[in-house]
Each structure stands twice: as C-alpha cells, then as structure tokens.
C-alpha cells in the first residue's frame, strides 16, 4: 500500500527541493501517518494548455514516516528490494484534471489526478487502493492500515 505513495511522482516533477511526494495513510482502528519524500525525479512540462510528464519516480526508501521502524516496515511492505521505485508515466493534465499510469510493486494502474497550478507550482492529489497494486493488508501488532491511500504531489512547472 505504501508503494502507492510512490505514485505521487505522477504529477510532473523534478529533483529539486520544491518537489515532494506525501503518502497519506490511515491507520486502523484510528490515526494516520504521512510518508514523505523530497527526492522526486522527473519534470513537469508545459505543452500549450497541457501539463505533461514522461516519467516521474521516487525511490521507495526515500519515503520517511517519522518513525525509523515504520520506515523499514513501509519499504518492506512495498517490496522495495524487488521494486525499489514508484513510477508515474504518461502524465497528461489540463484544467485541473489529468491521468497517468502509476507503477508500484511492479503493478501498473491508471490513476485520475486533480491538481491546481499556483505561482508556477503544481499541487496535485490522487487516491489509490493499495490492494490494486497487489499489496497485502498491512498490520503490525494489531494496528493496520486502510486500503485507501491519498497521495499529494507538489512540483514546479518547468
């Protein structure tokens, strides 16, 4: 599920500090955490009215949750040993909405994106289901995570 986070890269983005991907995970029975990476590779390009990106990617291990042990569990759950990256490809967006292909855990799925462009910075979000990416239900000592994951992406528009 956490792999989904990687999806974030979808939106067009680059390796600079202004870029970030945040995976919002809801815990069960209660609570939440965010896994965030600022090491996003790729660029968002403007093509007329369209915003496009060929490939945006983030290394799973670069996503940090605020607890070292949870970082390890998160990366393992996303099978980072076999699939170390999450990749967004074929991003095309216009008028606040877009589509892309997200690959996490070796599974590629289309995603629908909402975004807003302000002062040259794109803020996008999309929702995915961890189970769509063949990610087993995560649970640790009785606390699990919900299947729905929201991903926020912030990147400058080149």
């Amino acid at each position: 599920m956490k792999l989904l986070v990687t999806l974030l890269s979808l939106i067009s983005f680059s390796v600079f500090a202004q870029s970030s991907i945040t995976v919002n995970v809801t815990l069960s029975p209660s609570g939440s955490f965010q896994a965030t990476s600022t090491k996003v590779k790729g660029n968002l390009k403007k093509n007329g009215d369209m915003i496009e990106a060929d490939k945006i990617q983030v290394m799973i291990e670069s996503l940090k949750t605020g607890i070292e042990l949870r970082d390890e569990h998160f990366a393992k759950h996303l099978n980072y040993g076999t699939h170390p990256k999450a990749v967004i490809s074929g991003l095309k967006a216009q008028n606040g909405k877009g589509t892309a292909q997200l690959e996490v855990n070796g599974v590629s799925k289309p995603v629908s994106i909402n975004y807003e462009l302000k002062d040259g910075q794109v803020k996008a979000n999309f929702k995915v289901k961890a189970s769509d990416f063949k990610l087993a239900k995560a649970q640790y000592l009785g606390v699990g995570v919900e299947d729905d994951v929201v991903i926020n992406v912030e990147m400058p528009l080149k």
């Binding site: 815990l27 029975p29 209660s30 609570g31 939440s32 955490f33 606390v143």
Partner: peptide
C-alpha cells in the same frame, strides 16, 4: 503530536 488521534491504538 505523533498523529495518534485515538488512545485505542
């Protein structure tokens, strides 16, 4: 402050 909104966890 660690995002544990509920005590139940």
């Amino acid at each position: 402050g660690h995002s544990y909104t509920s005590c139940l966890n």
